[in-house]
Design a protein around this nucleic acid. Structure first.
Lengths: 205, 205
DNA sequence: TTAAGTGCAAATACTTTGCTGAATC
DNA sequence: GATTCAGCAAAGTATTTGCACTTAA
């Protein structure tokens, strides 16, 4: 009982920075194997399956969530909300800023940081850390799921696993805790069934 | 099939910074619920159950691992290795530095950063991120295990779950990947069976 | 109108690095 | 004795914040 949803670029050529991304110093993540491309290949607005025009008038899903929580909706927030609602990947702040600025240049990075933080506090967004030193965000409403990160390309694949929930809850229970949230990330390497290995993208040195 | 090993302070009073810790700005972590105390309460050398004197002469476990890998052993590295070998918690760089400096004041924070990074690359240490913006380290040889973080106190409890491994491997397999490493962290709240709740340490606002 | 949001730039916090002197193998 | 390492301070990168101005409700 599982279901995978790919969130990086649809294809395999996700190596490049895809934009003037920073990489120098803070090029570390959280696992033993260094991940060279923290979710390279961005994917913003749905390729062609945009939200029906009618629903657009009511704003993005996240915008509605903001309104529901009584947040003041400024133009900037509306744009940021839309960018995040339409994102199929897990953009970092810099990327959210880039996409938002494309829609409305009156937005500053500081506002993106502030907004994203506010939305996280309100439970509308969830912060993720797939290494690379930058925080990434995704709408909470995406439902519970976990991530599989391709250590060679940085691509992130989401998956959910029904049985897991209960098991984890049981473990926490035994330790005397109630789970507030779960972070399950698999860092893996793509299997190469056809040709034999030894020719991997990021090759382990 | 599970086994829990508590790694934070043994007791419950782990609120204080335990030392001149920084807290201001970078006070964010990775989950919806804000964790106010990123593993507060440090625990360095084993309270009283120190490594037998004989084994000490051969250096700490980590030192031996370094030698085995042909690393040049300087006094600083030896001290840092010892601090990490004897740590029962997951100290961040600043904390490793503090403990190391206590044993040998000729150590600079830059060296700690360099050493810790080197050891991670060599597979001797593993970097962890429990939120709070600082990387934490623990010896790889501690074996595979996961973490349960108390969102109220920041205490970290390690646990392992045999069945898990196979299941995760199966999931990765279905997605066409081979697992390189796993990150499973449960963020939870301690159950209060006796008195009713509403009076929690960090209280949610 | 008024509290809340925004831009900008400066400030923080964590981490890396260039360079020179020092220590290891 | 050559190569690698350490210290120091400066540079980077990610994120937050003070302040004056703007805007939503």
């Amino acid at each position: 009982m599982w279901m995978g949803r790919e969130t990086g670029c649809g294809s395999e050529h996700l190596i490049g920075p895809a934009d003037g991304g920073r990489v120098p110093a803070a090029n570390r993540e959280g696992q033993a194997s260094r991940m060279t491309h923290p979710e390279a290949g961005h994917q913003e607005a749905p390729p062609r399956r945009q939200v029906p025009a009618r629903r657009r008038q009511a704003g993005s899903a996240i915008e509605r969530a903001c309104v529901a929580r009584g947040l003041k909706m400024t133009g900037q927030r509306r744009v940021i909300a839309r960018v995040l609602s339409e994102a199929l990947d897990h953009p970092d702040v810099e990327e959210v800023y880039r996409r938002a600025a494309r829609l409305d240049s009156r937005i500053s990075i500081a506002t993106v940081y502030r907004t994203v933080r506010l939305l996280e506090e309100k439970g509308i967004l969830e912060r993720r850390d797939f290494g690379g030193g930058r925080a990434r965000y995704e709408p909470s409403e995406h439902g519970h799921h976990y991530h599989l990160i391709d250590v060679d390309t940085g691509r992130v694949i989401e998956f959910s696993e029904g049985g897991q929930e209960a098991l984890l809850q049981a473990i926490a229970e035994r330790l005397g805790f109630t789970i507030v949230s779960v972070r399950l990330e698999l860092f893996g390497r793509r299997n190469v069934p056809e040709r034999d290995e030894a020719e991997r993208p990021g090759g382990n040195k």
